[in-house]
Amino acid sequence: MSEAGHWIAQVGNYSFNMDTLVTMWTAMAFLIIFALIATRKLTLIPSKIQAFSESLMGFFWDLTDSMIGKEGRKHIPLVASLFLFIITANLMGQLPLRLIQLKQGELASPTNDINMTAAMAIIVLVYYVFTGVKKKGPKYFLHGFDFISIILALVEVLDMFTRPLTLALRLFANILAGEILVSALLGMCAYFLPLPIMFFEVLVACIQAMVFMMLTIAYIAMAVEEPEHH
């Protein structure tokens, strides 16, 4: 139920949602520390954490290889950090951080704030448009001057609005709906009733991170694919 009341701090003309900022930085700090520990002592025979991060990397390689192609591996920094950040942020919402009392709002997952998800969606938009323009030049927007191409270009412009909108809203609404569902069930019976929904939310957290990443890869793949010659 956090959308109603974020803990808002005013700095000049800007307002900051402090609870989102705190949880976001916590998630980022967790990831940075994980990366530092995982890459500190690299050995040929990997330790447990190195083996885990190598298998993660292999997972991203397989995914981009199958959806974009061999040169898709250079998009892994964006895609992998989006996935790891979203899954950390979503799973953080399942920790009992709400026990810490704030002035207003609560320490839930940062992805229950539309500003957070919209920022990530706009980054994805800028990235895939930039990649497409770098690969194809102005042909990315307009392939030719016949009727079909102009209609397709208009649809492409429409896509630039709908894709980030749906990308941001999907993640935000899934997480927020889960939190509202859990708190509604808590209101009915606080003891064991919300438990199955909380397990379901763990599943949803992983699936939504996966969906965000798969759609990002799909958008990049659509932007860089060569048009078929008829």
């Binding site: 959308e3 749906t166 809203l169 999907r170 935000f172 609404a173 899934n174 927020l176 709906a177 949803v204 699936i207 939504q208 996966m210 969906v211 798969m214």
Partner: peptide, 20 residues
Amino acid sequence: FLLGAALSEACALYAFVIAL
């Protein structure tokens, strides 16, 4: 399957945002 289910579930969640 999970990807497709999540994508179609998202349509209900757009309605949920409008309801909120």
